[in-house]
Design a protein around this nucleic acid. Structure first.
Lengths: 220, 220
DNA sequence: CCAAACACGTGAGAC
DNA sequence: TGTCTCACGTGTTTG
């Protein structure tokens, strides 16, 4: 129950409607607010259908489940979104730190290389990653289609598993020992790409692909 | 402005504090409500950090972005789960004809092998597929995680590109020359798996995995 | 009776 | 000025 509150005194208003101007205002206001609410709740209901077993859940708990689910999917899609490894048409090599959701310990680095296929390519890649010190390969994937090959591998710091908060990240960026040295890794991969000329000359594989300019795109 | 409503008549109440009992009630109520609000908003803030470019967004729009993002990730995860190149824990080799959507010409055969990782595995696989006559590799993919490796490759008949309706399929099933001989391919892959013992003995890789029984599951 | 959860209307601040 | 969003307190319902 809300009191009317505006009895009569409203004389000095220049408004054309001296009587119930505030009431119109207030009604449109509450109406707009109700509209806003139902927009939010509509999205909330949609989220209820999206996340598994979130029906009959507290609105707050639902949001909690949503954030958990998003984190879970983010992890899966990260390991698989990179799984969309369709080899591109240009030779390129890239090294990037995993977009760390939280600042949790084991520093991850994802490196990938795309070039024309050739025998012994993965052997060379394996040699390249082994050349990088203090790195442990946690996941390696290589896919070739139509003579083009893309390889992606994820490395993890091998030493630190206890302690070490930001020191790993710092070491990774500066490349000063103790962690995955991004620059040297990139250099090793780049060397793998540059080896292709000789191999192509010797092996003379069947697929005649249009040659590229020798330009190697470096990402990040 | 809320009307007081309880002026004096309160005689039959057994409450010990007849005067300001409601005020304490109301305060704890609003307090609890405020706590609930901040629970929700905390999760909302977490979601803001999780979805990309959702900062400075309307609360409703944020939820809209969240549902969109969840749908997107859900699709990616599904496509990744379909890719299913996660190496299993058992050694296995399989050969299967592509479930041909339409009866279009180039017959496709997908073969895969899953075993413990070892150096030179893909080299052996390549040798195995080359040993199969009249087959052209159109797609090859190999993924290793944690010492386990799964490789899948798709072959296509090399000769027929004009004419030849059902003859290819017939040849593929019977394995009578002129097309991909499934049995010989399976045998070649099986041989690759059996080679692992010696390689493991010589290479002595880092990952100490529990040995398997030597049983090789054959699918289809 | 109380605790939790929801929708509602309203005042305050930001363009 | 109006419009929009947000947080707050409150009434009401459910267990």
């Amino acid at each position: 129950m809300v009191v009317a509150a505006d009895s009569g005194e409203e004389g000095e208003r220049p408004a054309p409607a001296p009587a119930s101007r505030k009431k119109e205002r207030g009604r449109s206001h509450s109406e707009a607010e109700r509209k806003r609410r139902q927009r939010i709740n509509a999205h909330l209901a949609t989220l209820r259908t999206l996340v598994p077993s979130a029906s009959r859940m507290d609105k707050a708990a639902l949001l909690g489940e949503v954030v958990r689910h998003v984190r879970e999917l983010r992890g899966k899609a990260a390991s698989a979104g990179a799984g969309v490894i369709i080899p591109g048409e240009g030779d390129e090599v890239g090294v990037e730190e995993e977009d760390d959701d939280d600042r949790l310990r084991p520093r991850r680095v994802r490196a990938w290389v795309c070039c024309a296929d050739r025998p012994g390519l993965m052997t060379d890649l394996g040699r390249a990653v082994r050349a990088v010190g203090n790195a442990r390969p946690v996941r390696a994937e290589i896919a070739t289609v139509g003579g083009r090959t893309r390889g992606v591998l994820e490395l993890e710091d091998v030493c630190c598993d206890a302690g070490g908060d930001g020191v790993v990240a710092a070491a990774a960026t500066t490349g000063r020992g103790r962690a995955v040295a991004l620059s040297s890794l990139r250099a090793a991969l780049r060397a793998v790409l540059l080896e292709r000329e000789e191999h192509l000359a010797t092996a003379a594989e069947g697929y005649k692909r249009p040659r590229f300019s020798g330009q190697i795109t470096e990402v990040q």
